[in-house]
Amino acid sequence: MPVFISTSLRSSVVSRLRAAGCVFAEDEARILLAAASTPAELAAMVRARADGRPLEHVVGWAEFAGLRIAVDPGVFVPRRRSEFLAAAATALTGPPRGPGAVVLDLCCGSGALGAAVAAGAAHPVELHAADIDTDAVRCARRNLVGTGAHVHQGDLFAALPAALRGRIDILIANVPYVPTGDLALLPPEARLHEARPALDGGADGLDVLRRVVAQASAWLAPGGALLFETSERQVSAALAVARAAGLTAAAGRNEDLDATVVTATPR
């Protein structure tokens, strides 16, 4: 912990954050105080957070599934609710798929989901990750160092080598699912500081999902599964989209994380 921290300084930081509308001011103050190495750096960090920059962009990392995930400016910040998606995917890495299960983190952003699955899998996995955004791909490559992951850049499946077709055991697709009309309702941290393509799911929030499920069967291995996150209000429509594409689909819910995950498999 930096030596310059005092009780009065801590109180001052909490007060500044609370005045800026930060709901978890005490927790955020603790993180900022631990991250700053000098009073000047702390002042700059507090000012940036009070001005509305996401805390994760200010300190450069997010905690996700027990991991510290680097998050660069503009890159989608992994949400705690997505830990449910990571856990569901990790549970599928064992027999009969593992060891060596082929896992794809599509729309990977920072690579948090892939990193969590690689860390939690009972056996080593062959991990691939892909995103269309240059900044996200650069960030994912940093977070997936040491996992042996292959990180690809491009639009959905177009990013992937043809050799992966028909080989993917676990396809994680945390696609954007916010309806375009709802983007204005998002907190400013997301609306102003995260890349719009990582948020915007089209008119009903399901446009990108439709593109994924239309091609998923061709890329999945026999017995493979597609897993994606959706909102509770969209789950019925999301299930219908998956089933219309010829997939058998079922939803799971984690109330503590306010998370809904659909698991879909080819018929």
Rank of each mutant, 00 (worst) to 15 (best):
E56F: 05
H57W: 06
F76G: 01
R49V: 03
F76P: 04
F76E: 04
A48V: 01
R80A: 09
G94W: 03
V58Y: 03
A70S: 12
P73M: 09
G52T: 13
A48E: 03
A88P: 10
A50F: 07
F84V: 03
D72N: 10
A44E: 15
R47A: 14
S82F: 07
R68K: 11
G60F: 05
M45Y: 01
I69E: 01
E83R: 09
L92V: 10
A65D: 14
T93Q: 03
R80Q: 05
V75L: 02
A87K: 05
R79V: 11
E83P: 03
L67P: 02
P95R: 14
F64I: 08
R68G: 08
S82E: 08
E83F: 01
P73F: 10
G94Q: 11
A65G: 09
P95Q: 09
W61P: 08
M45I: 09
W61V: 13
E63P: 04
G60L: 08
E56R: 05
F84D: 13
E83L: 03
A70N: 15
G60D: 15
D72C: 13
I69Q: 00
A70H: 14
G94V: 11
A62F: 03
G60T: 11
P73C: 10
A91P: 07
E83D: 02
T93F: 12
A70W: 09
E56T: 10
F84S: 08
L55Q: 15
E83C: 08
G94T: 12
T90W: 12
P54T: 07
L67Y: 02
V58S: 04
R81D: 05
F76N: 02
P95I: 07
T90F: 08
